[in-house]
């Protein structure tokens, strides 16, 4: 079963990169796995050699990807494992943890949207409900109280120029910020400077509140 999960996971990644062709798939997996996937109704192969996840194939791939990427976030942000090393652990992790634990980890991390490598984490039921039964220690900056200090744990930014602006302003993991205001604009204090930004930017900053 594990090999099926790995194969579906790989197709998901190929789809994300829009490289989901039979040719690419066969670079990593054997032909009989491809045939088995088709036979058991996980995937469909189009005439132009494009592979598409279907039905339960897509469902399983989504789950695995979600576990894998959540595991990466957990390892890099909470346990400070180097990003490169996190990959290996996450590969094992994804096959062990069950649905319930996955949702708990997701909640604990504050329902992150992207993995440390900047790829999207598929949403789970917990994210939709956004329940706060498990008190998360990492929260989006938006949820921090005004006047409280917090450490930046990670930022989820896809836009290249915004990412550059962030790093040049020193908005990086481990830096401590104080939230000064949420409306109309977000204003935070970093060191001795004040930085102001809008909700869209605030959404992508995740912090660990300090007392």
């Amino acid at each position: 079963m594990e090999i099926i999960e790995e194969a579906l996971e790989y197709i998901w990644v190929l789809e994300e990169q829009e490289e989901n062709t039979v040719e690419n798939f066969l670079k990593v997996f054997d032909k009989d796995i491809l045939e088995r996937l088709v036979r058991e109704g996980y995937i469909k192969i189009k005439g132009n050699g494009e592979i598409k996840l279907i039905g339960r194939g897509r469902k399983i791939a989504k789950k695995i990807i979600r576990r894998h990427r959540l595991a990466e976030v957990l390892l890099t942000t909470v346990f400070d494992v180097e990003k490169e090393a996190s990959e290996g652990f996450a590969c094992k992790f994804e096959h062990i943890i069950d649905e319930e634990l996955t949702d708990k980890i997701c909640t604990f991390l504050g329902h992150p949207a992207l993995c440390p490598h900047g790829k999207e984490i598929p949403r789970g039921e917990c994210c939709l409900k956004y329940t706060k039964e498990v008190k998360s220690i990492i929260i989006p900056l938006q949820e921090l109280e005004i006047g409280k200090k917090a450490e930046i744990v990670y930022t989820l930014i896809k836009d290249k120029s915004l990412l550059e602006r962030f790093s040049s302003l020193g908005l990086q993991p481990k830096r401590v910020v104080e939230l000064k205001q949420k409306f109309p604009s977000f204003t935070i204090k970093l060191g001795s400077s004040l930085i102001s930004f809008d909700r869209e930017v605030a959404k992508s900053i995740y912090v660990k509140p300090l007392d």
Partner: peptide, 9 residues
């Protein structure tokens, strides 16, 4: 574009 601006003292 997004808005991010450093406020001078």
């Amino acid at each position: 574009s997004f808005y991010i601006y450093e406020l001078p003292p």
